[in-house]
Amino acid sequence: MKINKQLVFNLSLAFLLFFVIHFLMSNRIISAYYQLNIYLLFINIIMATSLNLVNGFLGQLHLGHAGFMAVGAYVSAAMTTKMDLPFLPAVITGSIAAGIVGLLIGYPIFRSGRLGGDYLAIATLGFGEIVRIIFVNTQYVGGASGLSGIPRYTNWPILFFLTVATVLLIRNFINSSHGRAVLSIREDEIAAETMGINLTKYKLMAFSIAAFFAGLAGTLYAHYFFIISPNTFNFLKSVDYLVMAVLGGLGSITGSIIAASGLTIISALLQDFGALRMVAYSMILVIIMIFRPSGLMGTKEFKLSFLEEKERR
């Protein structure tokens, strides 16, 4: 196996970051408020990166990512809180449940061809809303007031490890033959199909992989914040992730990470500016699409040039 210097460098940097933050947190140098935001930042990285798989790499507009997060959060929280099951099976089940819901929603949409792609935006938006309505009406998980008393199983090492794993797995997927099939659909559906790409299969694959990771983020979220309610995962939450993916660059994983981090920090510093924040976000969406449709990073990945591998033939 050849050694990828860039990857080694990135991973070393990541682990350095891990230990620094771990040190700061365990010695209470970081206040509880900032600690909370650091957790949120990593959960947002999982959300933005996985959303980018659909919006950036597949090129279809997905507006209900928070809905899948809700599925993961509720399924896992019900397992640990109501059934007293351990964390690991809850995380796995929650993520898989979100992935399966992704398959069920995606199948009728992607099966119906190009028209279906156009309707994905509306269908996912509606899906987010349906999930909310279902949880509001499900007394077993607390109805409208939400589910509380969820054990705090998510700790810093688990969160960090799973975030890094998510990013690596999505990167690996994109850089494989299956990932290239997904990219070709974004580029030209008709050409892709005549080159042997099964459109329905790969659209569905990208969509449900994204749903799976959103579910994972949901499980981590629920087991950090004690309480979840249907309104935690509303449409505006999905918009947050959309803005992160768009700002970072549709089709750039590092872009998603940078944008997710940046926007989480900005929101933490400027805590409550409600309507104005949404005005700013909406303007970001429009202005980026008009003046720099590729986002900050475009489809490029952040690399340090001195680490670039020399191509070996």
Binding site: A121, V279, Y281, S282, M283, L285, V286
Partner: peptide, 10 residues
């Protein structure tokens, strides 16, 4: 489509 969502939120 993203622009349209942006205008709507705006």
């Amino acid at each position: 489509l993203i622009t349209a969502i942006g205008v709507s939120l705006f």
